[in-house]
Write a protein that binds this DNA or RNA. Structure first.
Lengths: 150, 150
DNA sequence: GAAATACTTGACTATATCAGTCGGGTATAG
DNA sequence: CTATACCCGACTGATATAGTCAAGTATTTC
């Protein structure tokens, strides 16, 4: 069970963008250099990020990408979803009727709880937090708190 | 990003075993019937579970598998690790020196925090909890408590 | 307007892993 | 001795990741 590199790459690139965009649009080539991600692969990722309205592009010389929102408004979850890296802990198509072959499996609640856990965390942390190299203990506390109100 | 079925299958099979083993060893064939997992695939999984000392086998007629420990002593994490489904949120080989190409990446703390979060949850929940169809809020409280002590 | 820059797009590939199968084994109860 | 049920290695198809390649289009600058 491995959270793959695709989402990590996308987050790293977005953090890089947040840190450098104060001087105008940032080229993928420079992100590629700093983050050790191939240019072609970045192009693929940024196509999806643009389609998800997380970044804006400027073409031509002096062009590049900028964030479409404030860093504090972009959660890790948004980025992961944009590149099709949504976390999925269950395969149940229909949340209400059950898991497989019509009978709700005994482990359903376990995986749902884990899914909530991860989802809340990724929704709570933003690009801004990562830029600040925030200590995530506070975030985790907030996550637990919101979970307990379920 | 998907937590694959392998770990889910292993956990489902172990829970099934815990629920039925009071009448002696349980055959994989019966688990296969109840959990809709192919017999051959179960054999593959149980080989690993046995090598991890989570189950014991009895050969011959009337044989089958039993849990090697109390259900309350078997965490989900142990099962996941046994079938090579350890959760991995980072690819950093060396935790101390950094992430890639010698420089600690800016997202390191993010993924480490997420990994810790998941790991702790899976270590806290046991087969017994799943059998009881426990409400995992208590578990989350325990997670929060331990996090605050960090 | 030519040239350079940099994004845009579609198609392609190699590798790995998962999920599952198959064919043979070996131990043991009755 | 035979049926049961675990044991083991090898194999396969499908899928997804990670990454490449080749051709575009838009824009700025000289």
């Amino acid at each position: 069970m491995q959270l793959t590199s695709k989402g990590r790459y996308a987050v790293s690139a977005m953090v890089d963008l947040a840190k450098h965009q104060n001087t105008g649009p940032i080229t993928l080539a420079s992100i590629s250099d700093r983050q050790f991600i191939s240019l072609s692969y970045l192009e693929q990722l940024f196509r999806k990020l643009r389609e998800a309205n997380l970044v804006e592009s400027v073409r031509g010389p002096g062009g590049g990408y900028t964030l479409a929102k404030e860093p504090s408004e972009i959660s890790i979850s948004l980025i992961m979803r944009a590149v099709n890296e949504e976390v999925q802990t269950t395969l149940c198509k229909d949340e209400d009727t059950g898991c497989h072959r019509g009978s709700r499996c005994e482990t359903h609640n376990l995986w749902t709880a884990l899914g909530f856990h991860i989802k809340f965390f990724l929704e709570t942390v933003t690009i801004q937090d990562v830029c600040d190299d925030k200590n995530y203990i506070d975030t985790l506390k907030a996550v637990e708190k919101s979970l307990m109100q379920q």
